[in-house]
Amino acid sequence: MSTALTDISQTAPNTAPVSQLNPRQRIEALVDGVPTVGSLLAEAESSQTPGVSELEEPVQRVNEVMSEYGVQFQLTEPPGERMVIRIVDSESGELIRQVPPEEVLRVAEQLDKMQAARGGLINLEA
């Protein structure tokens, strides 16, 4: 059984077999196959996250199934904010769980403020 650590031909297809590489070439070939922070960030920014409108139908179907258990899922996405999913007791309207929790939303808001005020928390350029 080979893994990326033992078989670098998976990460660097145009290289010689592992047995023909010296240790430095093996490490370089392995490192070349590791994604960079910038490429991961660009990929994350380019990926489309579903909005409330795209999730309404699946959530309605989940709610139909979960109605016999007395719970209901609610999605909210205020303009310019993050999507929030709430699980609510159908009878009392009491909030059972929220994802992300209020604490996480407050931390994210503070991080956004710090990012805007200081021009960035993380410098991606070396």
Rank of each mutant, 00 (worst) to 15 (best):
G33A: 13
E57G: 09
V18T: 12
P78T: 01
L55R: 08
V34A: 07
V37M: 04
R26L: 09
R106I: 05
I8W: 01
V31P: 00
I96N: 05
E45P: 00
G70N: 06
R82Y: 08
A16Y: 04
N22A: 08
R24S: 06
K113Q: 13
Q20L: 15
Q110W: 06
P101E: 14
T6Y: 03
G70E: 10
L55S: 06
L75T: 00
Y69I: 01
A44C: 05
S9P: 02
P35D: 12
M83Y: 03
A42T: 09
S92V: 07
E81R: 14
G33M: 04
Q115L: 09
T6F: 04
D112S: 15
V34D: 04
Q20R: 14
L95P: 01
V88Q: 02
L75I: 07
Q25P: 08
G38W: 03
V99E: 06
V34N: 04
D7Y: 10
L30F: 13
D112R: 15
P35F: 04
R86T: 08
A16C: 06
P50G: 09
P17S: 13
E102K: 12
Q10T: 13
T6G: 07
V18K: 01
E103G: 03
P100E: 09
Q10P: 02
V59M: 13
E102L: 07
Q74V: 13
L41A: 10
I85L: 15
I27V: 15
S92I: 06
E103A: 11
P23K: 11
E103V: 06
V37S: 07
L111K: 13
A42W: 03
T36H: 08
V59S: 05
P78I: 01
L105P: 08
G33Q: 01
G80W: 06
M66S: 09
Q20N: 13
I96Q: 07
Q25V: 00
S67N: 09
V65L: 14
N14T: 05
